[in-house]
């Protein structure tokens, strides 16, 4: 069974059409990346798939659940990490992880928390208030929040945006490990190198349309390009 099936999805904000009929599938355990410029529709696509925004037309299923008819079922198996996500600044890191775990079944909570502490890797700083954290520490906490629940599908928007190389690499490694353990990952990024490093397949999105799709290797071969950035420029020519 495909983890995600998106068929002719459109999304309108009033008169503006942000998604103009995108179609793609993501297999179970796959890391799939959506890349494109600002305003191309990446975040809108991720927000729709995360049940945050309504579908204008088209059909989306996630692990067999219909996005329009069964959003509650979908929320039980996904985890969404927005680009500039924040956390409750008055909480301690550990309290925030506990707060999130409390939305899930009792028997899984301890295991989740243990996993969250491990992914965050913040040591004793987890006992400090979040407003004392650096940007990198906050992002690690949020990634821990997103992955500790072992979602069937993790939707990650601009995973390492604004982070230094060390923090970015740590987070990428964590996501890759989660994917190895069976979590399907759908991510978006401006960073073509990041996508090339992490994704099994990628979809290039521009002006609300997917303009090319395939594995980084196949796309580079098809467009005779040295890297994905060149593929992108070639595709949107």
């Amino acid at each position: 069974m495909a983890a995600i099936e998106v068929n002719n999805l459109t999304k309108k904000y009033g008169p503006l059409e942000a998604l103009k009929g995108i179609t793609f599938t993501v297999d179970e355990g796959e890391v799939f990346g959506l890349i494109g410029p600002n305003g191309a529709g990446k975040t809108t696509a991720l927000r729709v798939l995360s049940t945050l925004l309504e579908v204008t037309s088209g059909k989306v299923t996630i692990y067999g659940y219909d996005l329009v008819k069964q959003p509650d079922k979908i929320r039980e198996i996904i985890s969404y990490l927005p680009e500039d996500a924040g956390s409750y600044k008055n909480m301690k890191g550990i309290e925030y992880l506990r707060f999130i775990a409390a939305f899930f079944q009792d028997e899984r909570r301890d295991q989740m928390l243990e996993r969250g502490v491990r992914i965050a890797n913040l040591g004793e700083r987890l006992e400090d208030r979040i407003d004392t954290y650096s940007k990198g520490m906050q992002r690690r906490l949020l990634v821990a929040r997103a992955l500790m629940i072992q979602p069937k599908l993790a939707i990650l928007d601009e995973l390492t945006s604004g982070l230094d190389v060390i923090n970015a690499q740590t987070i990428r490694r964590t996501v890759k490990e989660s994917a190895k353990q069976g979590t399907t990952v759908l991510l978006s990024s401006h960073n073509m190198l990041e996508v090339e490093l992490m994704c099994d397949r990628i979809g290039l999105i521009n002006d609300g349309r997917i303009v090319a799709m395939g594995s980084p290797k196949d796309l580079k071969a098809e467009y005779h390009a040295a890297n994905i950035e060149d593929v992108f420029v070639e595709v949107v020519k």
């Binding site: 927000r47 995360s50 049940t51 945050l52 509650d72 929320r75 039980e76 996904i78 985890s79 969404y80 990490l81 927005p82 500039d84 996500a85 924040g86 956390s87 409750y88 600044k89 999130i100 939305f103 899930f104 929040r145």
Partner: peptide, 15 residues
Amino acid sequence: KENKTLETLLTLPVR
């Protein structure tokens, strides 16, 4: 909304 915590809350398994 400002701290972008609402989006996380809305995607959690809670009505």
